[in-house]
Nucleic acid binder design. Structure first.
Length: 650
RNA sequence: GCUGUUGUAGCUCAGGGGUAGAGCACUUCCUUGGUAAGGAAGAGGUCUCGGGUUCAAAUCCCGAUAACAGCUCCA
């Protein structure tokens, strides 16, 4: 007998060799149907693997990441089996579960090139195989056996993987005719996988290395019920509707032009309005936090970047140097603002009493991103950072970090960004030579970041090896409409530039000391931030950011004068307005995509003109009735104030 | 940068070796003056660009370019 401890602390006895599935059956029929995998002493196991010792057990269903993971991983194997049957000679790379769904990297044999059209046939085959209810069987093998088996079948990628594995810890999983090198865990059998959608086909380098061969990666997703797949498809469609590239075009916020160049966005009037408001909001916020606004030029002598070291590291991959009539004189487009701010720091001797010094700049920079990397406004070649550099003494780092976290919190709160994650990026402890700066400084800075985050109640995931080469950092990530993660706010410690620029301050001891520099950008860049903002709101911005808050619609041209009059009164009150005097049917205007995003619509006609009123319609929230213009102004101000309250009372 | 897909009217897209199509939007007119109406007429395109094959290319082939998806990258 073995003692099984459950998450609630209760303990039951079972025959030795009992499986997760048996345990689920002993609890309830329903649970036995829903359970997908089981945690045994913290390790995720197959439901059919026998438990021979006392153990702590947790049953995983679709609601657990681990359950979904086993489900999708099994789906990947099912797909591999289908591919093997349809395309004999296919070599298999790896096929894991991912955040939503799974993929398998394959190399189809016989020079076959798969296209989107083939996916349907694969799906069909998968459904067929799922119907035949094949069991996933776990088999322990020795390294030699595994190597023999896969070498014989010419599975070169699998052989490469096995070579890196430790003997004695190698397992196969088999279902039907397909055998895969795999750690598991898997579902009991293929019949669990009821609804399947293969979503896309793309190239992916073997082991993620650009120098390796490119394999064909097939992405898919699967569910235990057809209905869940349908719901997922609807969700994806809704996400596509919120895509910032689509909304940005519809709302006329920004554009790209082939004539201007790849990755160089142009802000249309309404987008500029929106961006200006975000900038002035941050400007005010930074002023309160004792930042000093500065401005630096767009081109710079290459020597500055040789001093900073960026030219050596990134020069080849940048927009190339600009020459002048003067022999040997070279400039480049500014890829970052930091070196300029360092020069400003050096403008005069600094005392410890001045520190921290905080230079802020909305600095437009140009970086030659690889062409395949460009993506809407989130990844561009010319963008404006809401940049600032804080120069401080080492023991001020933590405090400065906390103040920057405050600013980021205020911004996220004002814009209703709730589901962000924070990541602390530290250096890779096994690869210290990749980084510059002393061990002592790194440790001090890493500790300061972790403590600052903790003291601010910020939950973070700590990732080793993700630090910049010059210092550790704290990043804020937000997801876009289809779940891709983007980094927005960032705070980074830098020991490199103060060193290279020989920055110093005079301490209380009358000695020269080196300051520490902190880079920070709460938005990241105006471009990326606006993109994410659009995807969060679907273009329905908070009132204080809406490019136009009020549209005035005269019902016929007889009332154009009155409408103009209303407009003037509103404009005197700071409310942003737009007049739509096309004098068409109102119903037709309301369908207008452009007007859909404006929160208030004022309809004026005979009744309104005679009583000096307006009929107020709030988009998406129906009719608010007729009221005087003063009353309307109060209404709008109240709503805007309500939103701004969150900011200023924070 | 790599692999793949795509580029036709303002937008969404169909078509396809013989000089160009739909829906929505747009313009004018009619009907209806009041909260997602209906009708008529009209205007809009070097079919991304360059080269080749052909009697003939928007269509087939090659190259460039841009967008999209994924990989790699992101100071």
């Amino acid at each position: 007998m073995v003692k099984i401890t459950f998450p609630d602390g209760s303990i039951r006895e079972y025959e030795s060799g009992v499986t997760g599935l048996d345990i689920a059956k002993s609890i309830s029929h329903k649970l036995a149907k829903e359970v997908l995998a089981v945690s045994v002493n913290g390790e995720t196991w197959d439901l059919t693997r026998g438990i021979a010792t006392d153990a702590t057990v947790k049953l995983y269903t679709w609601d657990d990441e681990e359950g979904k993971h086993a489900f999708w991983h099994s789906s990947a194997h099912l797909m591999a089996e289908a591919l093997q049957e349809l395309y004999p000679g296919t070599k298999f790379g790896i096929g894991p579960a991912i955040e939503s769904g799974f993929y398998y990297d394959i190399e189809p044999g016989n020079d076959i090139v798969l296209t989107d059209k083939d996916l349907e046939a694969v799906e069909k085959k998968m459904v067929e195989l799922s119907g035949s209810r094949q069991e996933y069987q776990r088999v322990d093998v020795s390294k030699k056996e595994a190597l023999d088996y896969f070498s014989k079948r010419n599975e070169t990628y699998k052989v490469e993987l096995i070579n890196d594995l430790e003997d004695g810890k190698i397992t196969y999983y088999q279902q039907g005719t397909f055998t895969d090198l795999c750690r598991g865990p898997h579902l009991p059998d293929t019949s669990y996988i009821k609804a399947i959608k293969l979503t896309s086909l793309a190239g992916a380098y073997w082991r993620g290395n650009e120098k390796n061969k490119m394999l064909t990666r097939i992405y898919g997703i699967a569910f235990p019920k057809q209905k869940m797949l349908e719901e997922w498809l609807v969700l994806m469609e809704e996400a596509r509707q919120r895509d910032h590239r689509k909304v940005g075009k519809e709302m006329e916020l920004f554009m790209f032009s082939q004539a201007v160049g790849q990755g160089l966005p142009m802000w249309l009037p309404k987008g500029t309005m929106l961006r200006d408001r975000l900038e002035s909001f941050l400007r005010k916020l930074q002023k309160k936090h004792d930042y000093q606004q500065v401005i630096t030029p767009h081109i710079t002598n290459v020597n500055l970047y040789k001093t900073s070291g960026h030219f050596q590291k990134y020069g080849k991959d940048s927009f190339q140097v600009i020459t002048t009539p003067q022999e040997g004189e070279e400039f480049m487009l500014k890829p970052m603002n930091c070196p300029h701010h360092c020069e400003m720091y050096k403008f005069k001797p600094r005392s410890y009493k001045e520190l921290p010094i905080r230079f802020a700049e909305f600095g437009t920079v140009y970086r030659y991103e690889q062409s395949g990397e460009l993506h809407g406004l989130t990844r561009v070649r010319g963008f404006t950072q809401d940049d600032a550099h804080l120069f401080c003494m080492p023991d001020q780092i933590k405090d400065e970090f906390k103040k920057v976290i405050d600013i980021i919190f205020i911004i996220f709160k004002a814009l209703d960004f709730n589901d962000f994650t924070a990541q602390v990026s530290l250096r890779d402890p096994n690869n210290k030579e990749k980084y510059i700066g002393s061990d002592e400084n790194w440790e001090k800075a890493e500790r300061a970041i972790i403590e600052a985050a903790e003291e601010k109640g910020l939950k973070t995931n700590v990732v080793l090896g993700e630090a910049a080469f010059y210092g550790p950092k704290l990043d804020f990530m937000v997801k876009d409409a289809i779940g891709r993660k983007w980094q927005l706010g960032t705070i980074q410690v830098d020991y490199n530039l103060p060193e290279r620029f020989e920055l110093e301050y005079t301490g209380a001891d009358n000695q020269k000391h080196r300051p520490v520099m902190i880079h920070r950008a709460p938005f990241g860049s105006m471009e990326r931030f606006v993109a994410v903002l659009i995807e969060h709101t679907g273009g329905k911005f908070p009132l204080w950011l809406t490019p136009e808050q009020v549209v005035v619609l005269p019902i016929s041209e007889k009332f154009n004068d009155y409408a103009q009059n209303v407009l003037n009164l509103l404009n005197n009150s700071d409310i942003r307005t737009v007049l739509d005097d096309r004098n068409e049917k109102i119903g037709r205007k309301i369908r207008d995509n452009e007007l859909k995003k404006i929160p208030f619509m004022l309809v004026v006609g005979e009744n309104e003109a005679s009583q000096q009123q307006v009929s107020v319609r709030r988009q998406g929230r129906g009719d608010a009735g007729s009221m005087s213009i003063d009353e309307f102004i109060k209404l709008v101000n109240k709503e805007v104030d309500g939103q701004l309250e969150a900011i200023y009372n924070y």
